[in-house]
Write a protein that binds this DNA or RNA. Structure first.
Lengths: 228, 228
DNA sequence: GCAAATTAATGATTTATTCAAG
DNA sequence: CTTGAATAAATCATTAATTTGC
């Protein structure tokens, strides 16, 4: 028996909830019946994976008319129906609120903030915490890269490279183009939680939440209490 | 009233759980009493943030003798006491198991797998899901960069650049140095969940877990059922 | 007008980089 | 120096806009 085999037995036993580290290498119970190959390029995503994304209540029932929200007053035909239930499709209200918060200085909300935002936005359409998390990540990153593109476009412009390059360097540092950009340095100084805290938070059910601490954390957040 | 002010009122109201989007700009209730400045560089992490990391049961009681695990049989003095409660300090057993799993092909475990691993490793020391998550991320990344360093070191070597460079190119593709490397292409084809699923998972308490789906997801994982 | 084809936006993941504890 | 933790950058993948041919 080779090391490699040992590892594989260990791994298998592990995933099958067997007691491992017994060094026994006992019975190799037959593998779970092979399901259709999931290693292919998955044309159009196998349904089980889709259902795994949001196990709302088993994938049996199709989410057809699941608007716990009502009267979308947006004139757009932006219905947030998740027909196949794949990815979050934000409503106008949701986008609006998120951008408000972003303008207000929110960049990397921590777990509690994500939870709050999610609850609020949930009034306007189906949403999960991870959507909020990703939205801020993406929004921030794309603002940043747009800014960079702009400044580079300017500085690469063949004419009058002197004055403009200075100005756009300022812009690149987030001084000119849009005050949305994070204050100065990347890596502001850490101590941001995110997802896993949400996890912990939910596991303990509102009991052991210290009000003072929560308060403080909330107060921590608005990075720019004064509008620059 | 400027737009900026509106945004700030909105933001504040939002974080204070007030009904927003009422377009009223009503009373600005006095700000929450200013707590000591948290905008500084936070030398040695303000305690409240630490407590936020793992709100086990309010930060009141110091985690002094919180071994819900017993008999750490490792001869190392590797006690996993979190005196200040900072960062995870893996035990020998935990590392061993994790490396076993890594050797077995685990690279980016999904939420359920993280949960399983966490539970198992919890027998040998305090651990959270995020530790497992980060461990695989870091381990993978650092194996990769070590490999890259090695191959570059070889190819930058001034002598006999012909043969070696070929060999080390192979190595760079993950063929020679360590078979741990992901199969071939980066981006195997996705559909990996992670943390947020854990979150969902915990919020629904074991009820609506579809066995079939879980089964399938587990089966999805071991990328290398046969040792290359 | 209208679908198919193409493109643009952007949600979701993974990888690279960096910070910092010990 | 090693490595846990966190953030930023790069990338994939899907949905909406938009264009195109009929």
């Amino acid at each position: 028996m080779t090391i490699s085999m040992k590892v594989h037995h260990f791994t298998r036993a592990f995933w099958e909830h067997e007691p491992f580290l017994t060094l026994g290498c006992k019975r190799l119970r037959p593998l779970a019946p092979k399901l259709p190959n999931l290693h292919t390029t998955t044309p159009s995503l196998p349904f089980d994976l889709k259902s795994f994304i949001r196990p709302e209540s088993c994938p049996r029932k199709q989410v057809s008319s699941l608007h716990n929200n009502k009267d979308p007053p947006s004139p757009q035909g932006q219905v947030e129906t998740h027909p196949g239930g794949t990815r979050w499709n934000p409503t106008q209200e949701q986008i609006g609120i998120l951008e408000m918060l972003y303008k207000g200085g929110t960049r990397t909300p921590n777990a509690q903030q994500i939870e709050q935002i999610t609850v609020q936005l949930g009034k306007y359409g189906k949403i999960e915490g991870k959507n909020v998390f990703y939205w801020f990540q993406n929004h921030k990153a794309r603002k940043r890269q747009k800014q960079k593109r702009n400044s580079l476009a300017f500085s690469h412009s063949p004419r009058t490279p002197t004055i403009h390059s200075v100005v756009t360097l300022e812009a690149a540092k987030g001084e000119v183009v849009d005050r949305d950009e994070e204050e100065g340095s990347p890596y502001k100084k850490k101590c941001r939680r995110w997802v896993f805290d949400c996890l912990e938070e939910q596991s303990m059910s509102s009991s052991s939440l210290c009000e003072e601490e929560e308060y403080r954390t909330l107060e921590l957040f608005p990075l720019h209490p004064e509008g620059r």
